[in-house]
Simulated assay, not measured.
Amino acid sequence: MSNEHIPTKFSNPAPLGLAGFALTTWLLSMINAGWFSGDGMNMVLAVALAYGGTAQMIAGVMELPRGNTFGATAFVSYGAFWWSFALFVLFLHDKVPTAFVGWYLFMWGFFTLYMWVATWKAARALQLVFLALWITFFLLAAGEWTGMPGLKVAGGYGGLITAAFAFYLSAAEVINDAHQRTVLPIGAPGAAH
């Protein structure tokens, strides 16, 4: 048996995490935007637990040996968001005051806002995901606090935009890697689009 060192290349977990985030966000946002009734929530919860939460947790843990603090923090955090959201809807929704739900969403918006600041030197596509997401969280929080359905609908559309950006970035990462060239541009900072 040889003692030769075989170099290990870690795969990029970002497309997995982004896809789990995008798909779950899209489904929930269709309800928030008013495209579907709350009857669709059971599918959102199943996806939040099985894909949105779990895939992002896996992606976040995979970012650790790569030394990607941002990726690990983002994916583990948003994976935990989806798990906490599913647990809240399944078991606690009638036991938490609406104003407190607003604070839950607001604090996720605050977290997302400083994560967005951390993207300023990253690809434009990633900046857009986080920009749209913090706005979405703040709209949804305001909707909970004010009881204005229009804010929840606006948050739903913000979530759809966020999901579209995340799907695009996931697709670009996978397709560009598979073709070993830029097929779908992600826009490096300062690059022309």
Rank of each mutant, 00 (worst) to 15 (best):
T119Y: 12
L27V: 08
N12M: 08
F167Q: 04
F137Y: 14
A125N: 10
V44R: 04
T73G: 08
N12K: 06
L113Q: 04
L49S: 08
L133Q: 06
G190F: 02
A123C: 11
K9D: 06
P65Y: 04
L105M: 15
W103C: 09
G158C: 05
F110G: 07
G159H: 06
T69D: 07
A33W: 04
L49E: 04
M107I: 11
A46R: 10
G79K: 01
T25N: 11
F138K: 05
G52W: 00
A50L: 15
G60Q: 02
A125E: 07
L90Q: 12
G190Y: 04
W108L: 03
R124L: 15
G158E: 00
P149C: 09
T54C: 02
F165H: 03
L113K: 05
A19G: 07
L169K: 11
Y104G: 10
M148F: 12
F130C: 09
N3T: 12
L23K: 04
M41P: 02
L45H: 02
M43D: 10
A164Q: 05
M62A: 08
T8C: 05
F81T: 01
N176F: 11
R181K: 15
W116Y: 12
A122T: 10
K152R: 13
Q127L: 06
G79Q: 01
M148C: 07
L184K: 07
L160Y: 03
M148N: 15
G187D: 04
F85K: 03
V153W: 03
G52A: 03
L49M: 14
S170N: 01
V101E: 10
R66W: 01
F88G: 04
L131N: 08
T54F: 10
A14R: 05
F106W: 09
P15E: 06
G155V: 04
I186S: 13
L139M: 08
G143H: 01
A99Q: 13
N32V: 00
F75Q: 03
A122S: 15
H93S: 15
A59P: 01
M1P: 09
G143I: 00
A123T: 12
G71I: 03
P15D: 09
T136D: 06
H193N: 14
H179C: 11
A14S: 13
W35E: 07
L169P: 00
E4D: 14
K152H: 13
E63F: 02
P97G: 12
A48C: 09
L139Y: 00
G34T: 07
M107V: 12
W82V: 06
W134H: 11
